Simulated assay, not measured.
Amino acid sequence: MRTVLFLFAVLFFLAPAKNAFFDQKCYRLNGRCLNSCQKNEELVALCQKSLKCCQTLQPCGVNKDND
């Protein structure tokens, strides 16, 4: 029984750290965490609290890096 309680406590305290990882991944992809993506955005990853990481679509042939 002690083992079960220990595992529950470890998983309970690691959950917020895992969720923050997803938000950081979204921001590195230049995305935003929203409830739903707009027409000019695509879903590129997941965020915490059931949010979607949305990134604005770029028109064909246009690259932000080569302005």
Results as ranks from 00 to 15, higher is better:
residue 2 R to H: 07
residue 2 R to S: 08
residue 2 R to K: 05
residue 3 T to Y: 07
residue 3 T to F: 08
residue 4 V to K: 05
residue 6 F to A: 11
residue 6 F to E: 10
residue 6 F to P: 05
residue 6 F to C: 09
residue 7 L to R: 09
residue 7 L to N: 08
residue 7 L to I: 15
residue 8 F to S: 13
residue 8 F to G: 10
residue 9 A to T: 13
residue 9 A to H: 04
residue 9 A to S: 13
residue 10 V to G: 07
residue 11 L to H: 07
residue 12 F to I: 15
residue 12 F to N: 11
residue 12 F to R: 14
residue 13 F to K: 15
residue 14 L to W: 00
residue 15 A to Q: 12
residue 15 A to L: 15
residue 16 P to N: 04
residue 18 K to S: 10
residue 18 K to V: 15
residue 19 N to D: 13
residue 19 N to Y: 10
residue 21 F to M: 13
residue 22 F to W: 08
residue 22 F to K: 09
residue 22 F to N: 01
residue 23 D to I: 01
residue 24 Q to M: 14
residue 24 Q to P: 07
residue 25 K to D: 14
residue 25 K to N: 13
residue 26 C to G: 03
residue 26 C to N: 00
residue 27 Y to G: 03
residue 27 Y to E: 11
residue 27 Y to N: 06
residue 28 R to A: 10
residue 28 R to V: 11
residue 28 R to K: 13
residue 30 N to R: 11
residue 31 G to L: 00
residue 31 G to S: 02
residue 32 R to G: 12
residue 32 R to D: 13
residue 32 R to I: 12
residue 33 C to Q: 03
residue 33 C to M: 00
residue 33 C to I: 02
residue 33 C to N: 04
residue 34 L to P: 06
residue 34 L to K: 14
residue 34 L to Y: 04
residue 35 N to H: 11
residue 36 S to P: 03
residue 36 S to W: 09
residue 37 C to R: 01
residue 38 Q to G: 00
residue 38 Q to K: 02
residue 39 K to V: 10
residue 39 K to L: 12
residue 40 N to L: 00
residue 40 N to W: 04
residue 40 N to D: 00
residue 40 N to Q: 00
residue 41 E to N: 01
residue 42 E to C: 05
residue 43 L to N: 09
residue 43 L to P: 05
residue 43 L to M: 06
residue 44 V to F: 01
residue 44 V to S: 02
residue 44 V to W: 00
residue 44 V to N: 00
residue 45 A to C: 00
residue 45 A to M: 06
residue 46 L to Y: 08
residue 47 C to Y: 00
residue 49 K to D: 04
residue 49 K to T: 04
residue 50 S to D: 01
residue 51 L to M: 14
residue 51 L to N: 15
residue 51 L to A: 10
residue 52 K to V: 12
residue 52 K to A: 09
residue 52 K to W: 08
residue 53 C to W: 03
residue 54 C to K: 07
residue 54 C to M: 04
residue 54 C to G: 01
residue 55 Q to A: 01
residue 56 T to G: 07
residue 56 T to V: 15
residue 57 L to C: 08
residue 57 L to M: 11
residue 58 Q to V: 05
residue 58 Q to W: 08
residue 59 P to R: 09
residue 60 C to P: 14
residue 60 C to D: 11
residue 61 G to Q: 07
residue 62 V to Y: 02
residue 62 V to E: 07
residue 63 N to A: 02
residue 63 N to I: 03
residue 63 N to W: 04
residue 64 K to N: 10
residue 64 K to P: 13
residue 64 K to D: 07
residue 65 D to H: 09
residue 66 N to I: 12
